[in-house]
Design a protein around this nucleic acid. Structure first.
Lengths: 274, 274
DNA sequence: CAAATAGTGTCTCTAAGACAATATCAC
DNA sequence: GTGATATTGTCTTAGAGACACTATTTG
């Protein structure tokens, strides 16, 4: 009969084969485009951070930022660390989207990935600036479904356009897992991760949980509405949007002036549970 | 300059330290209790499968069924395999609830766990029977919150009562992650996994996605309502429940007779997307 | 008939969508 | 004043909760 102490000192985890564990992070940001004319409102674009792979495998293709789990951290901390290393910015929010563990998903061997989605405000990126080499870029995202139940993910940066085709594999919680039909030049199974991350983003945006993370501390309700419309890919009547978020925001005394029309009151997120 | 082939043949994953990866599964079942009197309807109990640990660490304490990930399977397949090995039954449904990777969560070393929740119908268990040793048992589950924002998880089997206290750590999607205040005799961090699994179960039950998995192919609407009430821990007016699920079910020609009151029509789940 | 569940009809209330109207600035 | 956005008010409609009522069986 062993004591627990004896047992543990004799225990050899190394006797069993183990996978390598990584995290891959889909980091999203919303950028205001150029105003088409003064006094018109700026359009928003949803952007995703991608890294061009410098080495094999999938050399030269684009992939999500990610890296190996270290012994002294949780997978969530690992995901945060990856984004901070890559952008210099700590994300406003981060959440898991799934585990990818198909035996042949990585040609280097047995590697399973914990996928996360994170949100970065444009403001924080502007403050830090970007000293990235040109191997890290923000791609504009488009994600739509056609009549055949297929989903089209298009990432655009300058002349580069990556177009992946996917279909639904399973649905749990508000989340959807996808199967890749064409990876469109996106490395590994990352096209599926990105699609799943987008569906997670939309699911969370439904109850206004995460849209604030794209904006600075204070914001106009119109700016908040544009974020919601950009993520959900819908358009909302201002009167209805204001009523729906009214429980989640509180007024400040500040106004935004000088835009060529009626000044807009600045709001901040209400902390109390609605 | 290497070719991809050369690169891969020289690649040594073993150069990096790797964690062991397990899955732990919270398997739920709903059992009809004895009728208090003839012609009265039977009450339901929510049950959770637990295993008494035969070895160190946490020897003699109760834990979720689980095991190490094998090289030729996904984590989801691993979870399915564990439940089938333990019960002889393939779950009607299975879904992920989170990854547990705190560095010191397992005294044996660096072990991260993929947690799943699965649903088993009482019918399937009754058909297979249980040849388990007495180290695998179904515990009755109670999960409530008090006014201080604390959550109380109570597992009962015969004389054995395990009572854990938890609080909310984070909320994403419909899911909630918990922090353990007292583990109540539940091994590892499994009390937190169970709490999270229950919140996942409730979240999924909201839109009637999983309640059918607790029942046989055909069922009465009252039986379906009892399942919903048991999981959500609420009571619903029959008229309203019938209206709400009407889009998810379709009639059969069968009736249940001989219960001392008006016969109930049997329904089955409607396959078409509502 | 009594006890019990099965099943239907309808009133109310809330929240979301549609739309009209007013307010306020920069030029 | 004009062009643009900011903000408010209200009509309509869909869906959930409450509740009263009818239907059908076994003993």
């Amino acid at each position: 009969m062993n004591s627990e102490k004896e047992f543990l000192s004799n225990y050899r985890l190394e006797d069993y084969e183990r996978p390598s564990v990584t995290t891959d992070v889909a980091a999203f940001m919303i950028r205001q485009e150029e105003k088409s004319s003064y006094r018109k409102i700026a359009e928003n674009k949803l952007l995703l951070l991608m890294i061009r792979r410098g080495g094999h495998p999938f050399k030269g293709m684009w992939a999500l930022p990610g890296g190996f789990l270290q012994k002294d951290e949780t997978v969530e901390q690992c995901a945060l660390r990856e984004i901070t290393e890559e952008t210099g910015v700590t994300p406003a929010s981060i959440m898991p989207v799934g585990v990818y563990s198909a035996p042949n998903r990585d040609p280097r061997g047995w590697i399973i990935s914990n996928a996360y989605v994170s949100i970065i405000s444009e403001e924080s990126v502007r403050q830090i600036g970007s000293d990235d080499a040109d191997d890290a870029q923000w791609f504009a995202v488009s994600f739509t479904s056609d009549d055949d139940g297929r989903y089209h993910l298009t990432l655009t940066y300058g002349e580069t356009e990556l177009h992946a085709v996917l279909e639904i594999e399973s649905q749990h919680f508000g989340r959807t897992a996808f199967r890749i039909i064409e990876n469109g030049g996106i490395a590994f199974d990352h096209a599926a991760i990105i699609a799943s991350a987008l569906s997670a983003l939309r699911s969370e945006a439904k109850n206004y949980d995460i849209i604030f993370d794209f904006l600075p501390e204070t914001f106009t309700l119109t700016a908040l509405q544009k974020v919601q419309e950009t993520i959900m890919n819908v358009s909302i009547l201002p009167a209805n949007f204001r009523r729906m978020v009214s429980g989640y925001v509180e007024e400040t005394d500040e106004f935004v002036r000088g835009e060529g029309h009626r000044p807009a009151k600045l709001y901040r997120r209400k902390q109390s549970a609605q």
